[in-house]
Amino acid sequence: MSLIHRLAKLRESEERGILFTGVEGSAVGAKVLVLESGETIGEGLDDAVAQFDELIRRGRNKLLTLDDGTKVFAEWYGPPPRLFVYGAVDTAEAMCRGARLLGWHTIVADARGKFATTERIPSAGELIVEWPAEAIAQVQPDHQTAIVVLTHDDKFDEPALIGALETEAFYIGALGSRRNQERRRERLLEAGVDESALERIMGPCGLDIGADTQEETALSILAEILAVRGQREGGFLKDARKRIHVEVE
């Protein structure tokens, strides 16, 4: 099967992978496709392929310069990220609407069957009525999943956060006042969560844009998720020293 045909098929199968192409130096024109499943098509470019794990988590294209000066273009293939919201509240619907605009897949879960309905959350790609641990087991968040916990209720939020911290999710956010965050922090520590793990939780989640309505809050959280994904601070571009486009380093 030709490489192009295999690449075209990746889009349908939603597999993740990286296409390495030598573009300058000793290996111009060499091509190696590595899939997350371990399948590899082509050979060579070993020093670039060795960076696969880091590159696949980064979720973006990158031009690699190897020690001998060889340049290898790494093109990222895979489905869009997933947004997983625990808590079928109004903000969850607004977040799903916003995430769909970004082309992301959206999943909302809540243990309360009366909350997690398509009437209330019509924009969710998937609705799950389960307690946090079961919902997380079902969704299996990975390094291309953002998790947001929105229930405002400790009996859901805490197990949801504990479960989220056990995954490789690239973003974990939780709503709640500063006072509630502090109280939750104490309770998670008591529950045996490692202090360093708690650093992964963005709480209160969202960028400081003066969000007031549900939609504004959703936009603020989505913007923060994008900033974390792009390893940016999320301030004004006019004040930014870094380059504007995220893939540029």
Binding site: N61, L63, I244, E247, V248
Partner: peptide, 12 residues
């Protein structure tokens, strides 16, 4: 495959 300063389209 590479951009310097601003560019109209991203790498890729």
């Amino acid at each position: 495959v590479a951009t310097r300063r601003s560019a109209p389209r991203p790498i890729g």
